[in-house]
Nucleic acid binder design. Structure first.
Lengths: 167, 167
DNA sequence: TTAAACTTTCAGTAATTATTGAAAGTTTAA
DNA sequence: TTAAACTTTCAATAATTACTGAAAGTTTAA
């Protein structure tokens, strides 16, 4: 496998993984491209490499920036804007964990707390609803707390922790 | 909030979360419904409660069974089949982790190993590709190993581990 | 066996989500 | 200011994904 084959394989695999996890293909592929690029890339560069339109590129770059894993960069004397990805894998993991927690997990935890907190009325179905949503609430809340730990620790905490667990 | 409101809120929230994580709404909602149901439900019951078609119900029940989190149950003397969900939250988490690892993470790890294993040719871009995909490979491989740990431990391992980490 | 009771499959259709491309908007050099 | 160089927005459209419903398939009781 030569450079081009490896690059294409990585980009398309990353895109497919994204899709599986609810992230759109273009967004994941732009990230993949920037992740392995030693130089900042312009919108033109990205459009050309991935064969996607200007609008699509622009919208997905914005999303990646909203996620905090891609940044704008300007080269002195040039009008064009360039983009670079976060290059540290730990920081990438932290940022993704943090954003998914904030956008998706926290709101669900809130609902689970509300639902599991309703008053029992003595019926079996209400008891079951309370019991089962409470169990889910506790699981989600624990997982989320762990994520926040990860987010707020020094950068190689993940690896250290994983190592501890694996041993 | 009364029983019906709480139930509906839980089911629709669970469906929305599923969608966000690449799981279709009907599948997530059927799971939610079974999760809080004290009794096994028939296909009719599910169709009626969620207002979905027979075909849709059948296909998504199959998927839930493939994931190992919903089971068929027959009542003696009845022709109809009933369905129950795994009720233990630890077992649910284990099963979901196991399946996502097998279906999605493992294949990606394989590609990352292949891509990061290509031979360097002295160019900067090849060096960067190797370096960055190797970092991702290590992260994914660690995370997956942890998942497998979870899958193969006694049922309350997750909670214990999380507790250790949180303290 | 037969046929009733049930489940699965799948072609067609609907709903959702992603993408395009051109117009509108913004920035900057002169 | 102006206009060139660039980016963003968004209505239209394409692509993907989910859903329906009826036909085909399966199981079981008699």
């Amino acid at each position: 496998m030569n450079y081009t084959e490896a690059k294409d394989k990585f980009i398309s695999t990353w895109g497919a993984l994204g899709t599986l996890w609810g992230i759109n293909k273009a967004m994941a592929q732009i990230h993949a491209l920037l992740w392995i690029s030693p130089e900042p890339l312009s919108m033109e560069d990205i459009m050309e490499e991935l064969h996607i339109s200007r609008g699509n590129t622009s919208m997905n770059l914005r999303q990646l920036m909203d996620w905090g894993i891609v940044f704008k960069e300007s080269k002195p004397g040039e009008r064009k804007e360039y983009f670079v990805s976060e290059k540290d894998v730990q920081e990438l993991a932290r940022q993704v964990a943090k954003e998914r927690s904030r956008r998706e997990i926290k709101p669900v935890i809130k609902v689970l707390r509300e639902v599991s907190g309703i008053e029992g009325d003595g019926t079996k179905k209400t008891e079951e609803l309370i019991k089962q949503t409470k169990a889910l609430y506790e699981l989600a809340d624990n997982a989320d707390t762990m994520m926040n730990k990860i987010v707020n620790q020094e950068s190689n905490w993940i690896t250290k922790t994983l190592m501890k667990l694996i041993k």
